[in-house]
Write a protein that binds this DNA or RNA. Structure first.
Lengths: 244, 244
DNA sequence: CCAAAAGTGTTATGCATACACCCATGA
DNA sequence: TCATGGGTGTATGCATAACACTTTTGG
């Protein structure tokens, strides 16, 4: 038991873990038990208390690893907002939660563990529509804010380092085709982007061609070139003009 | 004295109050006493503890009013980041601070009051350069983040409502000339924008012409049209093409 | 050959920039 | 009249978008 001279606040991190699974944007969500006092059967985001000697981002990284075993770099955890309405958590007096966004390359198997027992990957669109069952606390707003942040990051070419960092988390392999990458972008952005324009948009800015081609059997159509994501500080290398 | 079952966190709001004064971007800063234990003579940002039944934005609004008497709408308080490094405040175990940005129309006289006693308007550039004396805690980073947020908001035409809200706070009068507005933008953005391009950028998107002209005596040159900021939800009204 | 997928060409549009130029006033 | 500041015209470059077209494979 601790004592303090000011009203005690609980500080938590809520973590929005997004991935593309089966062409759909999904989030790691935890189903509250059916006999939960306040939000029976509702979906919630993973999260937890910040340790006494822990900064915010490391707390989010720890939560992520506890739930999925996935270790993220601190730079890949994007703080997008802090939520502190007095009544946002009916279980305690005051819980202020710092929202963090993480993009992971695939729907990692959820680890067995405390609250991870009822964790699963759920479609973001369904959770935000509300048709998939309500979300607990203010987690619907938090999820919406996180998705907006991801969309803004992937749309903007201006903030190249953050864009590249997120792009590098979209796919499980280091080498990939532009179709695979574009499918991931589309799942995040919720739209079908033009394949031709996508090439010009990312080539030399976000990814670089390796001049190697996918030889996989059972592939139909022309073999695709393999690409890799550029390092955050790598200079832009636009391909020379092609029709002078 | 309060008790809790978890380590006690203190939650505060730090508030970055920006205004344009004498053509320069300034921030409301508080000078710590010369006999301060940890940061003697350093500049700090105003801030304070969140009350037990208070949301974050209202806490920032309350702080602002206590320091300056200025009442801001909650929508004009922009939360830009939360800071929670374990050692960021040497006076307490854990202080997590939620940074809020407010733009005010003029360098309001600072109210006498508790910590407001040593408050004044200081140039942002000097504080960030460090040549003006160091800042306490992590307030230099907080100030830098706040200025970045303001610059991003005023540069982007995409997020029109937030842009308009901030633009409406830049100038003390409801009606103004584009030169006056542009001077305020320039102070925020730290650059001299082209007067001609500025007109096309904001006309119909951020401001609307009133078809009235400034008649003031002692003015040199052609009288300028008066403008007002558009409401956040007002539709864009581009002037018809002028040279078909 | 044909379908499918990868990638290029072409064109239009909107926005940002730079800068030349005209307009309306006070002195 | 001239200097001053307000405002328009015009050209260029870049990002986006839409879509026709060529290339290279498997069946």
């Amino acid at each position: 038991v601790y004592t303090s001279e000011f009203p005690p606040f609980y500080v938590t991190v809520d973590i929005v873990v997004l991935c593309v699974d089966a062409g759909e944007l999904k989030v790691l969500a935890i189903r509250r038990p059916d006999d939960d006092e306040h939000f029976p059967g509702a979906w919630a985001l993973p999260g937890g208390f910040v340790d006494i000697d822990e900064d915010l981002a490391p707390a989010a990284a720890r939560e992520l690893e506890e739930e999925t075993g996935f270790r993220a770099e601190l730079e890949d955890l994007h703080q997008f907002g802090t939520y502190g309405a007095p009544d946002r958590d009916p279980r305690y007096d005051r819980v202020v939660s710092v929202g963090h966004l993480v993009v992971v390359p695939e729907a990692l198997p959820v680890r067995g563990g405390s609250d991870a027992a009822h964790a699963s990957w759920e479609p973001v669109a369904a959770l935000l529509d509300g048709g998939h069952g309500a979300m607990a606390f203010d987690h619907r707003q938090i999820l919406a804010d996180a998705r907006d942040r991801a969309r803004t990051t992937l749309r903007q070419l201006a903030a190249l380092p953050e864009h590249r960092r997120m792009a590098a988390q979209l796919l499980p392999a280091d080498e990939f085709t532009l179709s695979e990458l574009r499918a991931a972008y589309d799942a995040f952005l919720g739209e079908r982007t033009d394949a031709a324009n996508f090439q010009r948009k990312v080539k030399g800015r976000v990814v670089l061609g390796l001049e190697r081609y996918r030889a996989g059997p059972g592939e139909r159509g022309r073999p695709a070139e393999l690409f890799r994501v550029m390092a955050p500080d790598e200079p832009v290398r636009l391909p020379r003009a092609e029709h002078p």
